[in-house]
Design a protein around this nucleic acid. Structure first.
Length: 787
DNA sequence: GACTTGGAGGTACC
DNA sequence: ACTGGTACCTCCAAGTC
């Protein structure tokens, strides 16, 4: 019989020394299928293959002509019936590709891509063979092939969120659980009855947990989606289920979630893809988000324009709540799932396309790091080059790589402080990726012989062969595909094409970091260092060309160049750009980023030189682009950030400092008169490691300690909030004056003037030879008075 | 005791 | 441990005069 379906979820298991792959998915009619396929694992041997041939006892061995790191090798492909058998062979021989995930291998071997249509030949399993699986059909597959046709796929997904009375897993109880799907909204609780139709009341926590399982089974989602659910919701549910002796049988075989330990926990449910949206957003989105934290509230606000409900009026520590409080709490809990649901809808095209482009299951794609994504892309495409995959690095190799010296990175131009008019900004498109491709930089092309691709690392020459290596070739294809899909998207804008082009772009951008990453299979320090080297050479030579044509360079960082147009036309600049491009090597390309009406560069706070990585620009239609300034730094108080951004805007709009000066005078007055709201003065600093690992005793550590003393939960990665208050002790350090935001106190006028406002604006006014210090009757004068 | 210096720490740029 | 290097800036503590 023949079947077609969309594969979503993958499992492997071993039975009687045979590996089986289980693929869960849906057919066009929405029926849920489980495909069962026997799978023979494999590994390669390339050393002493004749000897190995004699000693090996396995199901199938074949001799193959392969490549390893670009060089031809005779290899034995050794098929085994199970991963266990592969492991036994790996103990006796030096083998390759035994360290690739079994599901990845299954997909590679059969040239299959998740979340695309598959064609299956096989038989329906009888009832007693699959009575424990909650799917419509189980199919024992003989043959699986990738279908040539494409169908629209809309998965069923369900968002969930829990509320507890203790943050620490296992300590408290789950008060309520919300579930949101398509036309489906529920809050389950055992705490309080409610008149709200979506709230369902149970007599205790155990019954609520049972109902949670029941509702998920009834809804039958392909994806169960949470936000921070790998680290919180799912483990908490497991802990409470255990405590209440309830079986959390969420899996389609009624198994409980399984947690795998990596850097962080990952929660896996058999047959259903559990997605922790936080993790995907962290990897694929955070770089492009404005949000200062990746909290559900901020991310949802930025991506879908909706916020969490505000329940700050409820005192969580109070044991008795009014009915109104509970009702608000239910709404709040529901809203979190609503946001998660909508966020998944928004992000789904990206997960889908990541999965298709990387050819990895959505469960993995939603959790893998960018370096893992690059590596998966390589592994799935190595067959195009007939390559055997290199080993993962051993612990020893990794520690050696970590200890190695750093190499020289990007070139940053030393700007001359000042206000500039009429600026053209150029940048190299995907610079590092295009350097890798154009100069053929990779592990397999690193050459011991002298060639004419020569870079320099610490005064030592390094050579790369001219014969295209698989890594640069793959990257070239990635860049080409990116361009192709971007073009297609511009012709026919839709979220899928956008996501596809974006997926290729992200992989291309991570390729350079991958070769310099100590955990990479294809780690190559020389390639990474040479990429930076050739990038420096090219940007410096481009800067020189602008200079020679009388375009004064203002600034440059890594892959961008800002020049002053002076009296020259935009056309002249674009003509020069064209000329520069004609002489660039390979696929390298310099593009116009934009023209700007004005821009400002300032000095460093110490020294008279221009500060790098700090500038502000304004476009012809008055849009600001602010880089590096305190305005964009979350560890400065809002007041300083807002004042600075306002001042930059006034100066860049008008071209002079007059209005800005008025504005700063007003602000200083307000601070002195204590007219500033405390919320504007709060400083937020992240706790980057556990509290006792800190050597330095900084304000945010002092506050974190204070919080611990007051039993306020602290966790890694959280933002510690505080303000600086006045103190009687004139010599008190900043950390001694730091107070939690709900601690009573008067804000320290001098601190906010001298340590927040002044540093944020001083250098900007310095460009106009205005000394802002004179406006502030600062510490110095006060101290003179004391003597 | 005032001032300088360097490390720790955090966050941004690309 | 889960891409890379470059850069700015604050706060604190130790050292210098």
């Amino acid at each position: 019989m023949k079947f077609t379906f969309i594969p979503i979820n993958f499992e492997s298991f071993e039975l009687n020394n045979q590996t089986y792959i289980q693929v869960y998915g849906r057919n066009e009619k929405g029926k849920r299928l489980c495909i069962l396929k026997q799978f023979n694992d494999w590994c390669y041997i390339i050393k002493d293959i004749e000897k190995a041939k004699k000693k090996l006892d396995t199901i199938k061995i074949q001799e193959e002509s392969k490549n390893f790191l670009g060089k031809p090798v005779k290899a034995l492909k050794v098929y085994t019936s199970s991963s266990k058998q592969t492991k036994e062979i790996a103990e006796k021989f030096e083998v390759y590709e035994n360290d690739i995930n079994i599901i990845t291998k299954f997909l590679i071997e059969n040239k299959l891509t998740p979340l695309t249509l598959w064609e299956i030949e096989g038989e329906l399993a009888s009832n007693n063979e699959c009575s424990n699986l909650e799917v419509d059909f189980v199919i024992k597959a003989e043959k699986i092939t990738q279908s040539q046709s494409d169908i629209q796929f809309h998965p069923k997904f369900l968002a969930y969120d829990i509320e507890t009375n203790e943050f620490e897993i296992g300590k408290g109880e789950i008060l309520m659980i919300s579930l949101v799907g398509n036309n489906f909204k529920k809050v389950l609780t055992w705490k309080k009855q409610s008149k709200k139709s979506f709230v369902e009341y149970f007599k205790d926590e155990a019954e609520m947990l049972e109902a949670f399982v029941k509702y998920i089974k009834e809804y039958s989602p392909d994806f169960l989606v949470g936000y921070f659910s790998d680290g919180f919701d799912l483990p908490y549910l497991r802990a409470r289920a255990e405590h209440n002796k309830v079986k959390l049988s969420l899996g389609l075989d009624n198994s409980a979630p399984i947690f795998s330990r990596g850097r962080v926990l990952s929660g896996k449910i058999k047959g259903i893809t559990h997605v922790d949206l936080f993790r995907f957003i962290q990897v694929a989105y955070s770089q492009y988000l404005q949000s200062e934290t990746l909290s559900l509230n901020e991310v949802a606000n930025e991506l879908i324009g909706e916020k969490k409900n505000d329940i700050s009026h409820i005192d969580m520590n109070k044991t008795e709540h009014t009915q109104k409080h509970w009702e608000d709490f239910f709404e709040y809990n529901l809203q979190d799932s609503v946001l998660t649901y909508k966020l998944f809808e928004k992000v789904w095209p990206d997960i889908l396309e990541f999965s298709r482009v990387l050819q990895e299951p959505p469960y993995d794609v939603s959790r893998d790091s960018m370096s893992q994504n690059v590596e998966n892309y390589i592994l799935h495409n190595l067959h195009k080059f007939n390559e055997i995959a290199k080993h993962k690095a051993s612990h020893e190799e990794i520690s050696n790589r970590i200890e190695r010296e750093k190499y020289e990175g990007a070139f940053v131009f030393q700007p001359k402080p000042g206000l500039y008019n009429d600026i053209a900004m150029f940048d190299f498109s995907s610079m590092y990726a295009s350097v890798i491709v154009s100069y053929n930089l990779s592990l397999s092309t690193l050459s011991k012989e002298k060639t004419n691709i020569i870079s320099e690392i610490n005064n030592k020459k390094v050579y790369f062969s001219k014969k295209p290596g698989f890594f640069p070739e793959l990257l070239k294809q990635i860049i080409e595909k990116r361009r192709e899909f971007k073009k297609e998207y511009n012709k026919n804008p839709n979220p899928i094409l956008k996501a596809r082009s974006n997926a290729f772009k992200l992989i291309a951008n991570a390729a350079y970091g991958y070769q310099g990453f100590f955990g990479a299979r294809y780690y190559c320090l020389e390639a990474a260092a040479s990429t930076a080297y050739f990038a420096r050479e090219n940007i410096k030579s481009a800067i020189k060309k602008f200079e020679q044509s009388n375009f004064q360079p203002i600034y440059s960082d890594t892959d961008s160049i800002a020049v002053s147009l002076d009296n020259k036309s935009k056309k002249q600049a674009l003509d020069l750009l064209k000329q520069i491009n004609e002489h660039l090597p390979g696929i390298m390309e310099l593009e116009l980023e934009d023209f700007y009406k004005r821009g400002i560069w300032v000095t460093k706070r110490t020294g008279e030189f221009g500060a790098k990585k700090k500038y502000a620009l304004i476009t012809e239609d008055n849009k600001l682009k602010i880089r590096g300034f305190e305005t964009v730094r979350r560890d400065w108080c809002n007041l300083a950030r807002e004042v600075q951004s306002k001042i930059l805007k006034l100066i860049l709009t008008d071209g002079n400092e007059k209005k800005a000066l008025e504005y700063i005078k007003e602000t200083i007055k307000k601070i002195k008169e204590r007219k500033i709201e405390l919320s504007e003065l709060v400083i937020r600093t992240q706790l980057k490691k556990s509290i006792d690992e800190y050597k330095a005793n900084t304000p945010h550590i002092a506050i974190a300690r204070k919080m611990i003393a007051k039993n306020i939960p602290i966790n890694l990665g959280m933002l510690i909030q505080y303000y600086i208050a006045e103190s009687d002790n004139k010599k008190a350090l900043v950390r001694d004056r730091a107070k939690m935001i709900d601690e009573s106190g008067k804000y320290d006028i001098n601190y906010y003037l001298n340590n927040q406002i002044l540093p944020a604006v001083e250098n900007i006014f310095e460009v106009f030879n205005v000394d802002i210090n004179q406006l502030i009757e600062g510490k110095k004068q006060m101290k003179l008075g004391e003597f």
